[in-house]
Design a protein around this nucleic acid. Structure first.
Length: 323
DNA sequence: AACGCGACCAACCGCCTTATA
DNA sequence: ATATAAGGCGGTTGGTCGCGT
């Protein structure tokens, strides 16, 4: 037979999450780690299906998520990646570690699609800035995708072959960055990571108890989220009535104001979670590969790319006309 | 003040793939 | 090998908010 049944669909709550539910979920994940979503509703008493719990975690509660407006840099990157990968939001999100696929998808549907459309009508479909028009994108899209897939496969293979011996690849900056979470310092095992976060969450709960949200409200969660999304810093997600508890502050303070898309903004703790909920970067094309590809694709005049940030900075510079 | 409308976004839905008994 | 549930993903929906009239 198959697996045991997940969660019976009877009495499953739907709709916006309340702060209480959020805290329960976060506390549980702090203790047990993400994964095994099937057991989450039963173990926490949450009247939510496992799918809903997972979604809430990955799209909202997971540490390291940056909320609020997208930067130009991010938008440009999304546009390029969308042209490259199509509507594969999860894949696109893997290159924007602080953004969720849902976020990117929403941003695309509400902003970027219009921007591109406007650009297309304004520029009469002309390619002024090196950014591919939708037509030109679809024209060579499959060819490009194939090319990318081949590169991905090659890269994955070369990494797999070189895993056992340190070499130039493993010495590279991006390798260190994307693998740093695999080598936690001896003083910081995974369990201790969770433990420290448990402290945070308990403080969070204490503070939250002091200033409980107004009971009304199917909107309390919504209020939280809306406030947080208007906060371009991202991070803490409490309404103004309930001032951000200090625990929350430290727990969700992964996003420095200028840490837009950089990999190294991922803290070790963050990485532990991201390791679970984001695609493993080892299996992704290194950013630089995509970067180079985009450079080839978008603009022949772009020569160098930013070593520090690992972004598609230079090629994207060429599409500043968009914004 | 009331209404309409569009923008925004969290959450749901349904399908597909993967894992497991 | 097969059936079935979990997990993952993209598309869509529905509630809320802000702005203009």
């Amino acid at each position: 037979m198959g697996r045991p049944p997940c969660c019976d669909k009877i009495g499953v709550k739907k709709g916006p999450w309340t702060p209480e539910e959020d805290i329960i979920l976060v506390s549980y994940i702090q203790e047990h780690g993400p994964g095994n979503w099937r057991s989450v509703p039963t173990n926490t008493g949450l009247l939510r299906c496992s799918k809903s719990c997972r979604l809430r975690w990955t799209n909202y509660l997971r540490p390291g998520i940056k909320r609020g407006n997208f930067t130009e840099q991010e938008e440009k990157m999304i546009i390029h990646l969308q042209a490259l990968l199509g509507n594969r939001w999860a894949a696109i999100a893997s290159y924007l570690p602080q953004r969720t696929d849902n976020d990117i998808k929403n941003n695309w549907n509400t902003h970027l699609k219009k921007k591109l459309k406007k650009l297309q009508t304004d520029g009469d479909g002309e390619n002024r800035d090196g950014l591919s028009s939708p037509q030109s994108v679809s024209k060579g899209q499959w060819e490009r995708r194939l090319q990318t897939d081949i590169k991905m496969a090659k890269q994955a293979l070369s990494e797999a072959l070189s895993l056992d011996k340190p070499n130039s690849l493993t010495d590279s900056v991006e390798f260190k960055l994307s693998h740093s979470y695999l080598r936690p310092s001896s003083s910081q095992s995974q369990s201790s990571i969770y433990a420290s976060s448990v402290e945070n969450i308990s403080r969070l709960i204490q503070n939250w108890m002091k200033t409980p949200p107004k009971p009304k409200t199917a909107n309390s969660a919504k209020t939280m989220t809306q406030n947080s999304s208007s906060n371009t810093d991202g991070g803490a997600s409490f309404s103004n009535e309930a001032t951000p508890p200090e625990g929350f502050d430290s727990f969700f303070s992964f996003n420095s104001p200028n840490s837009d898309v950089s990999h190294d903004s991922v803290s070790p703790e963050n990485s532990v979670f991201q390791d679970e909920s984001k695609p493993d970067l080892r299996n992704q094309v290194p950013l630089r590969l995509i970067e180079k590809w985009l450079l080839d694709d978008g603009s022949a005049q772009a020569q160098a790319y930013d070593e520090e940030e690992g972004l598609i900075s230079t090629s994207l510079e060429n599409s500043t006309g968009l914004f």
